[in-house]
Design a protein around this nucleic acid. Sequence first.
DNA 1: CTTTCGATGATCT
DNA 2: GATCATCGAAAGG
Length: 185
Amino acid sequence: MIAGIDFLAPSADVARRLIGVVLLVDGVGGRIVETEAYDREDPASHSHAGPSVRNASMFGPPGHAYVYRSYGIHWCLNFVCREAGHGAGVLIRALEPLEGVAVMRSRRGVDDERLLCAGPGRVGQALGITREHDGLRLDAPPFELIAPPRRVPVVRGPRIGISKAVDVPWRFGLRGSRFVSRPFR
DNA sequence: CTTTCGATGATCT
DNA sequence: GATCATCGAAAGG
């Protein structure tokens, strides 16, 4: 259990429960307001075709990070779920900035707080995520996860930016948050 | 508000 | 050679 979440659970359960959790990397970050679940049996998942060099962390132990390079430009952060070897994870898609806002502004080169962490590539840039973070455990520095004090209202819908399994409703968000990458319907 | 397109590099066929 | 769990700028309504 990390921040009250059992990472052995199916990725959709973990994705839903991560909404409202505060994520910090070296003390910088905010509240998770948008996630997406991926699984081995899921054609849209990096793990679908089995283990490879890139997705090795996804087949590692749960409660660790899986970091990949997106479109040759961005670093995207995932949390590994299920038992080691299964190949499931949750993509962190957006945060509500809380800690180290000035640092995130400077890393992003953007003023608008709303655009600091609204999207997986932006989250990676704002938190300073790189290949170095791939495979690291989430319950030790530089990572810190803090459970929300109360239950939080969650909305769900289809995932973004994929071409397979486009109707699977495995995108989760904090209801009413203005910090999501795109509105929920 | 919407759509389109280029950047950029690892991965896979 | 094609595809990509993206972003930002540009152009059009």
